[in-house]
C-alpha cells in the first residue's frame, strides 16, 4: 500500500507515492532518477549510499523514505554551487586523483562534506577515522586522504 509523501531533495520539493518499505536509496535512484547516490552492500557497511539528512551523513540504504519526510536531503547532485562550478571537495577529488572507478566517490564526498563541517582542520588520523564507514575497493585511500586535506585548505580560503 503506497503512501503519499513529500521529500525535499537538494532544495527541490517532490510529492510522490511510495511503499513504506522503500528505502531512501531506492526512491532517490528509481523514482527521482538521482543516480549519483550508489547502492553497494545494502547493509550499512560500505558507505557508497551516503547522503545528508538535515546536514548529517547517513546510509540511505538503511533509511526508509517515509521516515525522512519534511527533512532536508542533500545528495551528490546537490553539492556543486552551479552548473559550471563544482564544490571544493569535488575539485580536490579530481585534482588529487582520488577517483578511480568512481563507485565509492559520491559516498566519500558526502561523508567528507559532513566531516569537514564539524572538523575544518583535521589530522590524517582524524580523516582515517571519519572514513570508517566508507570502503574503496580500488585501494585509493592515500589519494582520498590527500584530497580531503586539500579540500579542507580550500574551504578555509587556502590557509
Amino acid at each position: 500500500m503506497k503512501q503519499l509523501i513529500k521529500l525535499k531533495v537538494n532544495g527541490d520539493e517532490y510529492e510522490i507515492a511510495v511503499a513504506p518499505w522503500k528505502t531512501l536509496n531506492e526512491v532517490l535512484r528509481k523514482e527521482l532518477n538521482l543516480t549519483g547516490t550508489k547502492l553497494g552492500c545494502g547493509t550499512g557497511d560500505c558507505g557508497a549510499c551516503t547522503v545528508l539528512v538535515d546536514g548529517k551523513a547517513v546510509n540511505s540504504c538503511l533509511t526508509l523514505a517515509v521516515e525522512v519526510q519534511g527533512k532536508e536531503i542533500t545528495t551528490i547532485e546537490g553539492l556543486a554551487e552551479s552548473e559550471d562550478k563544482l564544490h571544493p571537495i569535488q575539485e580536490s577529488f579530481i585534482e588529487k586523483g582520488a577517483v578511480q572507478c568512481g563507485f565509492c566517490t559520491p559516498g566519500m564526498i558526502m561523508t567528507t562534506k559532513y566531516f569537514l563541517e564539524n572538523n575544518p582542520s583535521p589530522t590524517v588520523e582524524e580523516i582515517k577515522k571519519a572514513l570508517d564507514g566508507n570502503l574503496c575497493r580500488c585501494t585509493g585511500y592515500v589519494k582520498i586522504i590527500d584530497a580531503i586535506q586539500d579540500a579542507a585548505k580550500k574551504m578555509k580560503g587556502g590557509k
Binding site: 558507505g47 538503511l62 570508517d132
Partner: peptide, 12 residues
C-alpha cells in the same frame, strides 16, 4: 562510542 560502527550509523 567513538569506536562504534561508522559515523553514518551513529547518526541514526
Amino acid at each position: 562510542l567513538i569506536n562504534m560502527a561508522s559515523v553514518q550509523i551513529r547518526n541514526v
